[in-house]
Design a protein around this nucleic acid. Structure first.
Length: 266
DNA sequence: GCTGCATGATGAA
DNA sequence: TCATCCTGCAGCA
C-alpha cells in the first residue's frame, strides 16, 4: 500500500500514539537485532515522513530510517498483541500498545551524514510543500525528455508519488503518460503538482487512494466501494473510461505498468 | 500447492 | 535494461 500518503499517515499516527513513551524494542526476525538492542528501553521522541521515507527519532540522538518498499507494512495493536511472525523485522511495545513492522526494504539506524545524503536525493513532497517547490518541479520537467509518467516516479523530481497516483494524476490532468516531460505545457505540470497536493492530502487523512470526484460516488466512497471504483484508470484496463467510455489501456513503461485513457489523455 | 504479480528501489551490465 | 531484495495473495491447477 505504500505511496507517500501511507508514510505521512504512519508518521502522524505513530507520533500521536507512541512519541514520548519509553519502548521495548526487538527484532523477532533477527535481521534488525543489532539496531533493536541499541533502541531497547529508550524514549521514542518523534516520527517524521519525507516522501516515502520514515525517520524515527530516539532518545540519545539515534535515528532509524525505514522505507517500506513494495511490501512493507506496519501493524499496531492495543492491549494483547498477536505473536510476531517469522518476518517481523521490528517490534516495539510499551504502555500505548505494540507495533510490528514486516517486509521493509530498509530498516536501519543511520548516522546523520547518511541521513543528509538521503535527504538530498528526495525531491519536493506534495505532503510537505516548501517555498519554491513548484518551480523546482517545473524546471525538472523542462530539463527531461523521458515520458511524463516515468518522471513522476523519480523521487528526486517529486517525492511520494507511486504507480497508482501517477496514473491517476496523468488522467486528471488530461496528459498522455508517454508524452516527453519537456513537451508537457507548464500549465499541465502545475495542474499535476496541484492535483498531487490535493489528492495525497485526502489519501493521508483517509488511508486510501481516492481520485474520483466525490459527487460521482457520494458518501459511500470510503466504505464498501472497491478500489477500482475509487480510481479512474489504475488497473481498469479493458473497462470503460468513466468520462468517455473508451477502453482503458495499459502498457509497460520503464519496468512498471501504466494505465490511461487514449481519448481523455492526448 | 504453485505461479506470477504487486501502491518500490538499487546496483550491475 | 535486467536481476535482485522484500512479502502476501489472487488465480489457477
Amino acid at each position: 500500500m505504500p505511496e507517500g500518503h501511507t508514510l505521512h499517515r504512519a508518521a502522524r499516527l505513530q507520533q500521536r500514539r507512541f512519541a514520548g513513551h519509553q519502548l521495548r524494542v526487538d527484532s523477532p526476525q533477527g535481521r534488525f537485532s543489532d539496531g533493536a538492542a541499541l533502541l531497547d528501553g529508550r524514549l521514542l521522541e518523534g516520527v517524521e515522513a519525507v516522501g516515502k521515507h520514515l525517520f524515527h527519532r530516539w532518545e540519545g540522538g539515534l535515528t532509524v530510517h525505514i522505507h517500506l518498499g513494495l511490501f512493507g507494512k506496519f501493524k499496531t495493536y492495543t492491549g494483547e498483541a498477536p505473536e510476531p511472525t517469522q518476518g517481523t523485522r521490528l517490534r516495539w511495545w510499551g504502555e500505548p500498545g505494540t507495533l510490528h513492522l514486516t517486509g521493509p526494504t530498509a530498516c536501519d539506524v543511520i548516522e546523520s551524514d547518511a541521513e543528509e545524503q538521503l535527504l538530498l536525493r528526495i525531491g519536493p513532497d506534495p505532503l510537505a510543500v516548501r517555498r519554491g517547490d513548484k518551480q523546482r518541479v517545473l524546471s525538472a520537467f523542462a530539463r527531461r525528455r523521458i515520458p511524463v509518467a516515468q518522471l513522476l516516479l523519480d523521487q528526486a523530481v517529486v517525492s511520494g508519488i507511486g504507480n497508482v497516483y501517477r496514473a491517476e494524476f496523468c488522467f486528471l490532468a488530461g496528459v498522455d503518460p508517454f508524452m516527453p516531460a519537456n513537451e508537457v505545457p507548464s500549465e499541465k505540470v502545475e495542474d499535476i503538482w496541484r492535483l498531487a497536493i490535493a489528492h495525497m492530502r485526502v489519501g493521508e487523512r483517509t488511508g486510501r487512494i481516492v481520485t474520483v470526484d466525490p459527487p460521482e460516488v457520494g458518501a459511500r466512497l470510503h466504505r464498501e466501494i472497491g478500489s477500482r471504483e475509487r480510481l479512474y484508470v489504475y488497473k481498469r484496463h479493458g473497462l470503460g473510461c468513466r468520462r468517455c467510455s473508451s477502453a482503458i489501456r495499459k502498457a509497460p513503461l520503464a519496468g512498471r505498468t501504466v494505465w490511461w485513457c487514449p481519448t481523455c489523455q492526448r
